[in-house]
């Protein structure tokens, strides 16, 4: 029987873990041996941010702001308090600022220092948000980076980049898509993507969910 090169790889085998996985495991073991971390506490944290807290929270805030002008006003004046009205707050959302996209301004958020991100409303940051290319390029050439995300803006519109490397955490209030008059908050929520609340995306057009 003749063997092609791929035949040698048709058996099952386990890939060794990646370097980063090994490094995390080693760190975790050492911290555990020294009793500096409680593995049950880590599991509880991971469970919360994998299963309970994520960008649907932020989408709820945005949908309410689109539907209720008084709520929107409170949100833009004191975001932390207005977000707390919906039951969201806590770690990495202690001091929030909501920035509104308008016909004149498009806002986009980055942390050039590391990965600061509003956890209670968006969950944990995506990998690209933490990557060096995003963090360095979005401040220097925001329009090219946005175009790579599929967002092309008129030159007349101001692009306003927010570097959240201090103590405030930012949520972008996207522009409400046209032809959504009379929609319920639950319907509107479906148009609000994570990237729209970072500013690397826009809210989905109405036709996308109907």
């Amino acid at each position: 029987m003749k063997h092609t090169p791929t035949d040698y790889h048709d058996h099952e085998h386990t890939e060794p873990p990646s370097d980063i996985e090994l490094r995390v495991k080693a760190l975790e073991s050492i911290l555990q041996e020294k009793q500096l971390i409680d593995p049950a506490a880590l599991d509880a944290l991971i469970d919360i941010y994998e299963h309970k807290v994520g960008p649907r929270n932020g989408a709820q805030v945005v949908a309410k702001a689109w539907s209720d002008p008084q709520y929107k006003q409170r949100l833009l004046q004191d975001a932390t308090a207005a977000i707390a009205e919906l039951g969201f707050g806590g770690v990495q959302g202690e001091d929030m600022l909501v920035v509104e996209n308008t016909a004149a301004v498009h806002n986009v958020v980055v942390c050039t220092l590391c990965s600061c991100y509003p956890w209670p409303t968006l969950g944990l940051p995506p990998i690209w948000y933490k990557s060096a290319p995003y963090r360095s390029r979005i401040v220097i050439e925001p329009r090219s980076v946005l175009a790579e995300f599929g967002v092309t803006l008129a030159p007349s519109k101001e692009v306003r980049v927010w570097d959240s490397n201090a103590e405030l955490r930012y949520l972008v209030l996207p522009e409400r898509p046209v032809d959504t008059e009379g929609w319920s908050e639950a319907q509107l929520m479906k148009l609000v993507t994570r990237n729209a609340m970072i500013g690397t995306g826009l809210a989905l057009p109405a036709g996308d969910i109907r």
Binding site: I37, D38, A40, D43, L45, G89, G90, D95
Partner: peptide
């Protein structure tokens, strides 16, 4: 003694630790 134990996780997550004083 770990800084963060399991029973404090929900409290930490809920209240956070603001740098505002």
């Amino acid at each position: 003694m770990p800084v963060l134990t399991e029973e404090f996780v929900p409290i930490l997550v809920k209240t956070g630790a603001s740098a505002r004083v």
